[in-house]
């Protein structure tokens, strides 16, 4: 294999890893503050991508065609609406079930995710067909010696990395992050500190959902296509990444996301006809990892929970 295609695989793998990591961080945040698994997470991601697409179509219809302006407004619309939906899910579906068994939360969010997915399929114009996603970033090739890279890939990678670093800073270095970590460790003592528990939980849900929306939009910009069921696969992979990394652990979620993407890439490259089997290979390795380290690569007891 020549170096150009190795580079292509690397960029592709990094891009996937970043999307998975963004989704996995959401799972880990929700589990951190509330000990719940929110199974609508993948479909919330899809909602973010479709909101951004609608915003783009609306802006084009209104004659606003400037790509960067359009992109900025798409990001704002997708992230804001999805964050709001995330907070509403927290407020009306998850918090009321707080004293019920965790399975009930899992079920109600699973049903909500299905409803969301079906609603987009049925009510979005021709929602069951894949939708072209606008190509808004410059896609000229950057020459690095013999190698060439597309500028849009690099920009998307940089955007994702920046958001992950910013989230890490938010959790680790700000007063809000301090409160989120306190709630994650001990709800009652956090309340005694004067922390508004409900508010922090809802902000966390908004934050996690906004990250998913960003992953969805990056997905659309990278592949130039989205569809109503895109959240299924990304949700399951993000969940697997969070579990493999150690649910509740920020670094674990990032590592898990990139690990899964690396496995897919290796599967696609190393196995003959591998690209059809890359998911089978990646999930098989994840299953083996879970059998080996049942509590995740970074056990929650030893590491800082978000």
């Amino acid at each position: 294999m020549d170096s150009a295609s190795i580079l292509q695989h690397l960029v592709n793998g990094a891009m996937l890893g970043m999307m998975y990591a963004l989704v996995a961080v959401g799972f880990t945040l929700f589990f951190g503050v509330l000990d719940v698994i929110k199974f609508s997470h993948g479909d919330v991601l899809m909602l973010g991508a479709f909101t951004a697409l609608s915003a783009a179509l609306g802006l084009s219809a209104a004659g606003i065609e400037q790509p960067l302006l359009q992109l900025a407004l798409m990001l704002v619309a997708g992230i804001a609406l999805t964050g709001l939906v995330g907070a509403l899910v927290g407020r009306y579906l998850v918090l009321p079930l707080k004293s019920a068994p965790a399975l009930n939360t899992l079920l109600i969010t699973l049903m909500f995710g299905t409803a969301l997915r079906e609603a987009v399929r049925v009510f979005y114009p021709q929602g069951s067909n894949p939708k072209p996603f606008p190509r808004l970033l410059p896609d000229d090739a950057l020459q690095l010696g013999a190698l060439s890279l597309r500028a849009d890939s690099l920009l998307l990678l940089a955007l994702g990395a920046l958001v992950i670093i910013a989230t890490h800073w938010l959790i680790g270095r700000t007063k809000l992050g301090l409160a989120i970590r306190a709630v994650a460790q001990d709800e009652e003592t956090a309340k005694i500190m004067g922390i508004n528990y409900t508010k922090i939980v809802l902000i966390t849900f908004a934050l996690g959902s906004a990250l998913a929306a960003l992953a969805g939009i990056i997905n659309g910009l990278y592949y130039n296509e989205i569809n109503f069921s895109m959240g299924l696969n990304l949700g399951v992979i993000g969940f697997a990444a969070a579990i493999v990394g150690g649910l509740g652990n920020f670094y674990g979620a990032i590592i898990g996301g990139f690990l899964f993407a690396a496995l897919q890439t290796i599967g696609a490259v190393a196995i003959p006809f591998g690209s059809s089997y890359k998911d089978v290979f990646a999930f098989a390795v994840v299953i083996a990892l879970m059998a080996w380290k049942p509590t995740g690569l970074i056990a929650e007891q030893e590491a800082q929970r978000v």
């Binding site: 007063k175 301090l178 003592t189």
Partner: peptide, 14 residues
Amino acid sequence: KVFAKSTVEENLRL
């Protein structure tokens, strides 16, 4: 009921 996984300073700031 200290926040075991937070530092002394973080506990105080809380």
